[in-house]
Nucleic acid binder design. Structure first.
Lengths: 163, 163
DNA sequence: TGTTATTAGTTTACGTGTAAACTATTATTA
DNA sequence: TAATAATAGTTTACACGTAAACTAATAACA
């Protein structure tokens, strides 16, 4: 009990400077592990995590969306979305359409091929989510989500571009 | 209370498939936000998050470490470490030395210049950690760390290369 | 109406994570 | 001891994320 699990894993000699730092590092480290595992899963379907996210957003919306609207719903900033859509288009998973009313806007639409792939992924993905975190009790899951949402309050008000 | 905060932020129409998925997405999203903020901080000092991590590990150890030992303590895999060390070396923040006993091994040593930069960062970084997550009570921080550590158990046993 | 500002998106440059193939060195073992 | 395996790193190819500069189109407004 003298030294925490994360502390041992990082082979740190000294205790954490603060509980805040420990919690933050726990978030980063847990995310890295989970991203790593999820990345492998997506790769089995020829996708990356970012690509899957774009497709999931488009399917959830049920209709074409402007590029920047998609970018806004992901965490990241603007320019990355261009290449992301480029690659999805090359794989025939989305199509681009210029808006006729405002010719600056590019609408992105998901293809049937992509919808098919997504539907194949749904069950295995749900299973993977359970594998990753299903060993927490319902109360623990609820509390973890609550704490993470509360944690994010510090950055979500101060405009980061999204939302 | 009908729909959670994350659900609203993602503008999802339907509820989450499961509490597991919701918790996982909360981890990913919180991490993205925090990484974003921390990245800006590191950039002010001419570093990236990965570079800072390497330097922090080296300072913590207090002596030179083999490249792969460093890679192992970060979450990531092998090849990235080469370029990372390359760039740090170019900035004169670390030096490389071949081990004479086993000439395959490359030891990486932190420079005084880097130690100086790190010491300048310590206080502001601690302050940033508090800004990010200091609005959680001590009990909440402790519980958050506990839950994240428990969450990681699912991936830390199944060898990912590290630790 | 013509100039300026804003908006949507792209391009470029750089750092980094991932997989796969490769080199150099050391260990194993038939 | 010669062939083989294992280990430490590197290189290459590709997908992103970030910042900064840029284009095209629309809005605002003097």
């Amino acid at each position: 009990m003298a030294s925490s699990r994360l502390q041992r894993q990082l082979k740190k000699k000294k205790p954490f400077d603060s509980p805040e730092q420990e919690a933050n590092l726990n978030i980063l480290r847990t995310n890295d592990r989970f991203e790593n595992r999820l990345g492998k899963f997506f790769r089995e379907y020829g996708l990356t995590a970012s690509q899957y996210n774009v497709l999931r957003i488009l399917r959830g919306e049920g209709k074409p969306l402007p590029s920047l609207e998609i970018a806004g719903r992901m965490v990241q900033v603007v320019p990355a979305i261009t290449g992301l859509i480029d690659r999805l288009e090359k794989q025939e998973l989305v199509t681009r359409k210029r808006c006729s009313k405002d010719r600056r806007v590019v609408y992105v639409e998901i293809t049937d091929k992509a919808l098919e792939i997504l539907s194949q992924m749904d069950k295995p993905l749900a299973k993977l989510h359970r594998e990753l975190i299903g060993h927490l009790s319902p109360q623990e899951l609820k509390e973890l989500s609550r704490l993470l949402e509360k944690a994010r309050q510090s950055v979500e008000n101060n405009a980061t571009g999204a939302s």
